[in-house]
Amino acid sequence: MTRPRDPFASTLIHRLPAGLKLGVLAVAGTGVLYLDDWRLIALAMVVTLALYRFAGLSMRQAYLQLKPMQWILALLFVAQGFMLSWGMAAAIVLRVAALVLLAMLVTLTTRTDALIAAVERALGPLRRFGVNPAKVGLAFSLALRFIPVIGAQAQEIRDAQRARGLGANPIALALPLVLRTLRMASDVADAIEARSPYDDDELPPRFVEKAKSTQSRTTCKDNKAPLETSST
């Protein structure tokens, strides 16, 4: 069976340590905030887009990172344009877009477990103040994992409301979404509990015994066939 290629090892940017990428993101992000000249901010944007290409990502993929916030950026541009100047508005919007693109580049090119390990290492010194780095790391992972799930739930609720003739009402959407998310959070907490049976343990003998029995077992060929990929 051909092994799938590890996408997190495909380019130099992918292979850089997660801690280094987060550090560079923090420094570059702060730097972009201090830039006033719109031409320099535009240059930062060009460099960011060049990094996308360097990481083997297309301009469409870069656009997709900004798409969910395009209306916010448009509103920001118009508001700042009227309140300040159109040049300043362009600089502010470019700055926000460059920061978002840089942050997304890090998440697109880094394994989540590597990001979490880096966050946990960085928070290590805060243990003495009662911070649990493992819990912060897990919260970070859950946020990344459940953004699309909550997005899909919002879409489901919107569709159901549309089917029943309800127009776009933010409160009618928010209430069931919050209730569903809270119920889901309770289930997810149970699942984390159920799936975390080890706590800094040595490898138990059952792993060695079961590995032997697995090697001697014939794997069912049917199981290798991918399932129907109809989305649910």
Partner: peptide, 22 residues
């Protein structure tokens, strides 16, 4: 959906082994 806690398939499977010295 409520049991899968990591965004990438292999990371999620590895989650159960997190507490093992491995």
């Amino acid at each position: 959906d409520n049991q899968i806690v990591f965004p990438i398939v292999e990371e999620d499977v590895a989650f159960g082994l997190k507490g093992l010295k491995l």
